[in-house]
């Protein structure tokens, strides 16, 4: 059986900015697929094309077997969209919001109402159903947003950065909700900037940067690919950095990366973190190197990007600026 979401060679440019440079995805029904990348990577562009908000320049995409361009009209009643790309009306109550979306899915009025009541109950918003959405907390608003996307019981759900800007508690709540939806058999494609989030929720993850999928696999596969844990050292004197690299040569599973400005060295150590840490301490001691801090780190999105692209994942306010900047540098390093 074909995937619930199939994307082949999707291309999209905005003027001179290439937002998507030919991405391929295949999402199996009933699974969560995480699209992981920094701002400006092309995640939202991909979601906007898949939800018929934007026409692709090239390539093709199908959701539940329907082409996002040719069958756009039929497709719109088959998926739900929530997050960055969609919103709730803050002047309407929670109930009115869900009811309105239900009516716009062409549910009969009585059913739209009943469904709104049911869904607000389920998302823990029953008590707030009669209040205007502008009185909701950030977490409640996001739950309302996701609730609205579910009103017509779609098989496929697109969640565009569903937890960005939420406090940890609200994030946990939303994660629990998403897991529940998957258990019911829904297919979910979510975008996120957080490896932790993809790690927690997604069956498969595609890492996307500069409009290209640069790695794909399960969370474990990706972590193996980027070398698992990282040993991170901060020195007191930056002059020691080179010496440390010499002293610790061969200790990790990959080449160390240096950050002179921060006085920091990061060494990929695979899954042998604790023993490598213990190994390194006496060596540094013998070399009389003063260390400000030494610690083991689980891989972060930064590590993924460092390892996969050779540059850091920058989180900037303006996604275009970030993308342009990185593109410029990518061109500089890799002239084609």
């Amino acid at each position: 059986m074909a995937g619930a979401i199939v994307v082949e060679g999707l291309v999209k440019s905005f003027g001179t900015v290439e937002a998507l440079r030919g991405i391929d995805l295949d999402v199996a029904p009933g699974t969560v697929f995480g699209l992981l990348g920094p701002n400006g990577a092309g995640k939202t562009t991909a979601i906007r094309i898949l939800t018929t908000l934007l026409l692709p320049d090239g390539g093709r995409a199908e959701v539940v077997g329907l082409d996002v361009v040719r069958d756009a009209e039929a497709l719109r009643s088959r998926f739900g969209l929530a997050g960055q790309s969609a919103a709730v009306d803050e002047n309407l109550t929670g109930l009115e919001n869900i009811e309105m979306v239900g009516r716009l899915y062409h549910l009969p009025s009585a059913e739209a109402r009943a469904r709104a009541v049911e869904i607000l109950e389920r998302f823990g918003l029953a008590d707030a159903a009669g209040r205007q959405a502008k009185t909701y907390s950030g977490g409640m608003r996001r739950r309302l947003d996701v609730a609205a996307s579910l009103v017509a019981r779609p098989d496929v759900l697109f969640l565009d950065e569903p937890t960005t800007g939420l406090d940890p508690r609200s994030r946990m709540d939303l994660w629990a909700m998403i897991r529940e939806l998957v258990n019911e058999g829904k297919t979910i494609l979510l975008t996120t900037q957080y490896l932790e989030e993809a790690d927690n929720l997604a069956d498969r993850i595609a890492v996307i940067d500069l409009g290209t999928v640069i790695a794909e696999g399960t969370s474990d596969e990706l972590k193996d690919q980027i070398g698992g844990e990282v040993l991170e050292l901060h020195v007191q004197d930056r002059a020691d950095l080179a010496t440390i690299v010499e002293i610790l040569a061969g200790i990790g599973t990959g080449e160390p990366t240096l950050d002179h400005e921060a006085g920091r060295i990061r060494i990929p150590v695979g899954s042998a973190g604790p023993s490598t840490l213990l190994d390194s301490v006496p060596r540094l001691d013998d070399g009389s190197i003063a260390i400000a801090d030494i610690a083991l780190h689980r891989p972060t999105l930064d590590d993924v990007f460092l390892s996969l692209t050779g540059h850091a994942a920058e989180q900037e306010e303006d996604p275009d600026a970030a993308a342009t900047k990185r593109r410029g540098r990518a061109r500089g390093e890799d002239p084609r």
């Binding site: 906007r48 939800t51 018929t52 908000l53 009209e73 719109r76 009643s77 998926f79 969209l81 960055q84 790309s85 969609a86 919103a87 709730v88 009306d89 803050e90 979306v101 716009l104 899915y105 062409h106 609205a148």
Partner: peptide, 17 residues
């Protein structure tokens, strides 16, 4: 600006509505 038009445009509602 608030993203409501995006939500509306993702729904199977009339384009004129």
């Amino acid at each position: 600006k608030k993203g409501l038009v995006d939500r509306f445009r993702s729904l199977p509602m009339a384009r004129s509505a």
